[in-house]
Amino acid sequence: MRRQIPLILTFLTGIAIFIAFFIPHKPFNEVQDILLDWAIIIAGFALLLGIHSLLRKHITHIKKKDGGWGYSLILTFFFVGVFTVGIFSAIQYKGYSLTPGSLLYFVYDYMVIPLSATMFALLAFFIASAAYRAFRARRLNATLLLIAAVVVMLGRVPIMENAFFNFLSRFSDWFMFIPQMAAKRGILIGVALGAFAMSLRIILGIERTYLQ
């Protein structure tokens, strides 16, 4: 029973949504939107598990005064602080806490955004180090990868204005449109088939690892 009920539920919801895709008539046209709405509510409850896991871990650290417990304190402090700000903003703006001018919006603008942008920009360093390593790997595949990368990169940013770079620029466009696109299409078709097989296995209850 503990196995059957979830499997039957997966089967029914999966099939219902799949069929609804082909029926424009009411109420089938609304099935997808309704279930997506439901999924958002359910995900909201799931977050309680997340908070529990996170706080349990860090509060234990703080209590035991493990090495680095100070960082756990910082994390907990900022979590509680920002969440309080969130509730405060939600009350102030009647449920629309992300209205520009609210405190939560301020946190978003001055903390979440710059920190994210900073992490994101790390990619500039890492893309260079990854390219360097690909360059040193003396395997045919790595070499092909690197040659293509250099060709497209130089084609996108012509260093000089001359016939060679003009050619390179047009060649790299062609390169993106034809060979690059060919492999991408092959991979996408494969992914779609693999995902289809997986979805089918999930709906039919063959794949059930996620329900351990």
Binding site: A130, A131, R133, L145, I187, L188, G194, M198
Partner: peptide, 26 residues
């Protein structure tokens, strides 16, 4: 299965399961 991210994994990791290989893995 993200085609645009695979190049980075290929260049930075020792082994990469490309797209459908990952689904076949299970």
């Amino acid at each position: 299965d993200r085609v645009t991210l695979l190049p980075f994994f290929i260049s930075a990791c020792d082994y990469t399961l490309i797209g459908e290989e990952m689904f076949a893995a299970s």
